[in-house]
Design a protein around this nucleic acid. Structure first.
Length: 591
RNA sequence: CGGGGCGUAGCUCAGCCUGGCUAGAGCGCUACGUUCGGGACGUAGAGGUCGCACGUUCAAAUCGUGUCGCCCCGACCA
């Protein structure tokens, strides 16, 4: 491909609004172009990267025995009504209406495809002999993000690989789940991504029923808890907290309770600012509605209640923050002043064990604009149940080895999930077993955000000059760069080398622009082609320069030997990313 | 949806506070010339409903109100 024949609108300056590396560099490299908030066009270079990621995903899925199909992005809304997900998705669901000769059909732009695939499978599968089945597609998904952000990392329209498996039993589900898990590891490592599989909220099946694949990155939106010692890793929503002893410090004097006016202070931050206290010294009381019954939940001011953990601890179906009227009734005060002492109604009090360590603490007084200070457990209030009801934070004990946990931001690129029968029940997807009995099909689902693979790579692999692509994802593997565009002999050689490399199976772009060398070099570095072949002074001695993007020095290679040698190196690198990973490790070590 | 910021040439921005000639710069673009190994230089050009609407005023990019769009923080996120 000749540069002059494609569209690569590189930019010297950072466009207004781009703040994180992947967004900045993908825009500057002319890979993407914003159409509106949360929607980006992929320009030729970006599209090539996306295509490479897609192909890697496809190859590994096929190897793992998955079968590709292609469903529709449009789907009748009625299908989502059957699974109650019009309500569940709410504003996230992109809806429309088709007008056909006077009749209106409500449709949705699919945010995922459980409904469609389950409906399909239930239509065509009726016997245990047809199961298990593992199907996937690569398609655009639509989710109306309330706040799209970070360029292509969080958009309302994105490319996703979604796979679904169908089973008669949990054993084959486990086996398929494992196969998908392994395939995901191969996919992300082939893409040069520093992925981390973590335990995730698992839904109906529980246990080891769900893993997310995370790319550690400061701009990730998820928090991953991990143990640097034993390797335990989980999403913060899922991470368990290891049990440790929590005792009140023995040598502290318990002061008498006092009620203080705290006008205008109804959040932890406001209370702490007002009373000059640290959040970890304050006890936060939240009134939850647990299957309709109000429950008070106590955690430290610096901790967050985890509703899933609370739900499991209380063996409840539905847990949500109580509404304002309930809080008023239970506490006798407006929202923001709840506390465990002097609740108007006797309700169950659940607490995180760490509050045992808090002495002379501050709590809401259950009166408007008032808080109590010097409150102490046992002396002033009691707790009905201690348990793990909060998100883990750095420093908590690892549930496996007990050593302190760490936290890191991460980008979610993949999710594998044992679904169970949620959708097959709702859509009545059944099969006849060997005994002639009707049974509900068991499902698993497995997603990869393909657009996020590309953005995640740019986010984790760049330097000041631009992106550093691994060969496997690079828009072009080699950039052939004649320094003197008006030297016919150099052009001829450049074209010959380009053709030779292309014939040897490499993706090559020939920078045939009539630009000064500096411009070409800067653009090549910005885009991040893994190899630049420069035809300059040394051409007189029959040599060209070969420079890998991550190396600082070029090597001279005989023109005649270039095609074979480079094609072989590219082929190897494409498969292993060995040079890419080694260079990256070196960069990280240098930091 | 709450808080903050920004909308002036294809891109990055100045001008606005304190209203007043034909609205500016750099980059990019076109033509010609000189250049040619890390974003060259000269000359001549093209390119603008100053986001949009209403209002105030003799006069609005500039002041006011409204509205639309974009970015960031927070809430939300199957």
């Amino acid at each position: 491909m000749k540069w002059s024949q494609t569209l690569i609108p590189t930019m010297k300056e950072t466009p207004n609004g781009a703040e994180i590396p992947s967004h900045i560099f993908m825009l500057r490299a002319g890979m993407i172009s914003q159409v509106m908030a949360g929607a980006y066009a992929y320009l030729p270079l970006g599209w090539r990267c996306l295509h490479k990621a897609t192909n890697i995903v496809r190859e590994e899925m096929n190897k793992a025995g998955a079968v590709e199909l292609f469903m529709t992005a449009l789907c009748p809304q009625s299908l989502y009504e059957q699974t109650n997900r019009v309500e569940a998705f709410g504003n996230v669901l992109v809806k429309s209406t088709l007008l056909r000769g006077g009749t209106k059909t409500p449709v949705v732009f699919c945010p995922t495809h459980e409904e469609e695939i389950t409906s399909l499978v239930s239509q065509y599968v009726s016997s245990y002999r047809q199961l298990p089945l593992l199907l996937y597609q690569i398609q655009t998904k639509f989710r109306n993000e309330e706040r799209p952000k970070f360029g292509v990392l969080r958009t309302s329209e994105f490319l996703m690989k979604d796979a679904y498996s169908f089973h008669t039993d949990l054993e084959t589900l486990d086996a398929t789940y494992r196969k998908m898990y392994d395939a995901y590891c191969k996919i992300f490592s082939r893409c040069g991504l520093p992925y981390l599989p973590v335990e995730a909220e698992s839904g109906p099946i529980g246990g080891d029923g769900s893993h997310e694949f995370m790319i550690p990155s400061p701009n990730g939106e998820d928090d991953v808890i991990y143990c640097p010692k034993c390797g335990y890793a989980a999403n913060v929503e899922k991470a368990e907290i290891g049990e440790t002893e929590h005792n009140r410090p023995a040598d502290v004097e318990l002061k008498p309770v006092a009620e203080l006016d705290t006008p205008g202070a109804h959040t932890i931050d406001q209370v702490c600012a007002f009373l000059k206290a640290k959040p970890r010294k304050v006890v936060k009381t939240l009134i939850y509605s647990v299957d309709g019954t109000p429950v008070a939940v106590l955690v430290r001011g610096d901790q967050d209640v985890n509703e899933n953990k609370l739900r499991r601890l209380l063996k409840a179906d539905k847990v949500e923050l109580a509404d304002d009227a309930t809080i008023q009734r239970v506490t006798g005060a407006p929202v923001g002043f709840a506390g465990p002492v002097g609740l108007k109604e006797k309700i169950k009090i659940v607490a995180d064990p760490t509050i045992k360590e808090v002495v002379n603490t501050i709590v809401g007084a259950n009166k408007a604009e008032k808080h109590l200070v010097n409150v102490n457990l046992d002396r002033d209030f009691t707790v009905d149940l201690f348990g793990d009801v909060r998100n883990a934070v750095a420093g908590d004990a690892c549930p496996r080895c007990g050593l302190p946990l760490s936290v890191e931001n991460a980008i979610e690129v993949g999710h594998v999930f044992k679904l169970g029968t949620k959708y097959t029940d709702a859509l009545n997807a059944k099969y006849l077993d060997e005994n002639g009995q009707l049974q509900t099909i068991i499902m698993g689902c497995y997603g990869i955000g393909v657009s996020r693979i590309v953005a995640g790579l740019a986010e984790t692999s760049h330097d000041d000059a631009g992106i550093i692509w691994p060969v496997a994802l690079a828009p072009y593997e080699v950039c052939v760069c004649p320094v003197k565009p008006n030297d016919p002999a150099a052009i001829e050689t450049a074209e010959k080398l380009t053709a030779g490399l292309e014939a040897a199976g490499c993706d090559v772009i020939l920078d045939d622009r009539d630009e000064r060398p500096g411009v070409k070099f800067k653009d090549a570095d910005l885009i991040g082609f893994p190899v630049r072949v420069t035809l300059g002074k040394s051409l007189a001695e029959g040599k060209v320069e070969v420079k890998w993007r991550w190396d600082s020095e070029a090597t001279l290679v005989d023109v005649d030997a270039l095609v074979d040698a480079l094609a072989a190196a590219i082929k190897e690198e494409r498969a292993t990313s060995a040079r890419f990973n080694a260079a990256k490790a070196k960069r990280n070590a240098a930091k």
